[in-house]
Computed example of a mutant assay.
Amino acid sequence: MAINVIIAGPRGRMGTEAVEMVTNEPNLQLVACIDRKNDKEKMREYPTLSRLKIPVFEDPEECFHTVQADVFIDLTVPEACFDHATIAIQRHIRTVIGTSGLTNSQIEELSAISKENQTGCIIAPNFAIGAVLMMQFSKMAARYFPDVEIIEKHHDQKLDAPSGTAVKTVDLIKQTRLPKTQGHPNEEEIIPGARGAVDDGIRVHSVRLPGLVAHQEVIFGGSGQTLSIKHDSIDRKSFMSGVKFAVENVIDLNELVYGLENILDK
């Protein structure tokens, strides 16, 4: 039986790819989309949705009330995403979130709502399987190389910095690495911010340029050696296998899971 899916953010770059992926997968069925800037006259902006007669709703409440769905995918912005996910989970629609920029308190609140309603939710800082492995390898390496810096690079339309992938990488590294202040104790930033953001002594540098998609390098330094773990997404299609994987697995969850790495081996 096909999994009925609602997608929020069908006009975005990720949303466009997700619409194409879902409509081309035999075990997935796109039943509606949510776009708060939609109106009936703009259906021509959605050629795939128009051809398949997929309804596009401005109001998420109306969408979730009108359409029977198994899974909701949100690929919007943090402010809208939190509201969408809250409504979906409370209506017992399992939810997959690819929107980055949610605060820790928002994630904790969604986790509580998910648990209360016994309705699964997956928040994935990155859907590319290679990026998930990069984060896991970094966690392993940090046990032996405590000196580490992260350089993440994304397109210039990305709203949050550092990226959700970088934040998740830092969280994973902190699980195996003791806090440490890196660099010379008397170092000075001639230009403020030159050394990047810092979390638990880990330096994070964000690059935003046109032409980029999603890239991250985690650089470890040790006595007489360095180790670099790098991942590059050069096309947003690289994220779709992870989106499909999340949709197929969230069906069996009754609570919130943060990061695809937690379900890869299940």
Rank of each mutant, 00 (worst) to 15 (best):
N254I: 00
L102M: 03
A194S: 14
P60L: 01
P146D: 02
D156P: 01
G259T: 01
G120M: 02
E248D: 10
T23E: 15
R203S: 11
P162F: 05
M134V: 05
Q29S: 14
T66S: 15
T66N: 11
A8E: 04
V247M: 03
G193K: 05
K53Q: 14
I251E: 06
S111N: 08
A142E: 05
L178A: 12
K174T: 02
A142C: 03
R91D: 00
G120N: 04
K168M: 15
I34L: 11
T23W: 07
I263N: 06
I97M: 09
L253V: 01
D265C: 04
D160A: 12
T103A: 08
H215N: 14
V243W: 14
M14K: 04
S111I: 04
A197M: 10
L75W: 09
P10K: 08
Y144S: 07
G221K: 15
G224F: 12
I234L: 14
P146I: 03
N262W: 08
G120V: 00
A161L: 10
E217S: 13
E152T: 08
E217L: 10
E187Y: 12
I150K: 03
Q106D: 04
R51Q: 13
Q68M: 12
D147F: 10
V247S: 00
A141N: 05
Y258T: 13
S223R: 14
K266M: 11
A166V: 01
Q118A: 10
R51M: 13
S100C: 14
S138D: 02
E45G: 01
D39Q: 06
F57Y: 15
I191V: 11
V71C: 04
E41T: 13
P26L: 10
D59I: 06
T226S: 13
L172Q: 03
D199M: 08
S50M: 14
E255Q: 09
A8W: 04
H84D: 10
S238E: 10
N27E: 13
I229L: 15
F239M: 06
L30T: 06
S238Q: 09
I191N: 07
Q175A: 04
L133V: 10
A141Y: 06
F127V: 03
P146K: 02
D160V: 13
A246L: 01
S228M: 01
A85W: 01
T16I: 05
M135S: 12
I6V: 11
V250T: 01
H155S: 08
C63S: 09
E189D: 06
F239A: 11
I113H: 07
H231N: 14
P55I: 06
I7E: 06
V31A: 09
Q29H: 13
L260F: 03
L30A: 12
F82H: 09
E188R: 11
M135L: 10
V132F: 00
T95E: 07
K230Q: 09
N249E: 08
G242N: 05
N104A: 09
L256M: 12
L260C: 08
V243R: 00
K237R: 07
K115P: 02
E188A: 09
R51V: 03
R91C: 00
